[in-house]
Amino acid sequence: MLTLDDVHPYLPSGERTMAFAGIIAKNTPSTANWKAYLRVVLERSALRRVVHAAEVIRDSASDDRPVAEIIALAQQATADLRDLDDGEPDYHSAADILPGVVSLIDAKYNGNAPRGLSTGLPDLDEIVRGLRKGNMIVVAGLTGSGKTILGLQVAQHVTTQLGGAGLVFSMEMTKEELITRGIASMGAVNLSRLDEGSTIQDDDWPKITGAVGKLQKARLYVNDQAGMTLARIRSIARQCQKHEGLDVIVVDYITLIASEGGGQNRTLEVGKISTGLKNLAKELQVPVIVLAQLNRGPTNRPDKKPRPSDLRDSGQIEQDADVVILVHCDKESEEGQNGATELIVGKCRHATPGSCMVQAQGHYVRFVPFAGKPPTEEQVEMGRVVRFSSREGRKDHE
Rank of each mutant, 00 (worst) to 15 (best):
T3H: 14
D6A: 13
H8I: 12
E15Q: 10
P29Y: 05
T31I: 11
A32H: 08
L42V: 08
E43C: 11
L47Y: 12
V50K: 05
E55N: 13
E55W: 07
V56I: 14
A68G: 07
E69R: 15
I70N: 11
I70D: 12
I71V: 15
L73N: 07
Q75I: 07
D80H: 10
L84W: 06
D85R: 11
S93I: 00
A95Q: 14
D106L: 09
T119K: 02
P122W: 06
I127N: 04
L131E: 06
K147M: 01
I149E: 08
L152G: 15
H157K: 05
H157I: 08
G163H: 01
A165G: 10
G166S: 11
L167E: 01
L167N: 00
S170R: 11
E172D: 14
L178K: 00
T180W: 04
T180I: 06
R181P: 08
G187Q: 00
A188V: 08
S198F: 13
G210C: 08
A211V: 07
A211L: 06
L230K: 09
R232P: 04
R232L: 03
A237H: 05
A237R: 03
A237M: 04
T255G: 10
I257E: 06
A258K: 06
G261P: 00
R266G: 08
E269T: 13
T275S: 05
L277S: 10
N279L: 15
E283T: 02
V286Q: 01
P287T: 01
I289V: 10
Q293M: 09
P302M: 05
D310I: 03
S314H: 08
Q319L: 07
V324C: 02
L326T: 03
K331P: 04
E334Y: 09
G336T: 06
A340H: 14
R349I: 01
C356F: 02
A360K: 12
H363M: 12
P374F: 05
M382G: 15
F388C: 01
K395T: 13
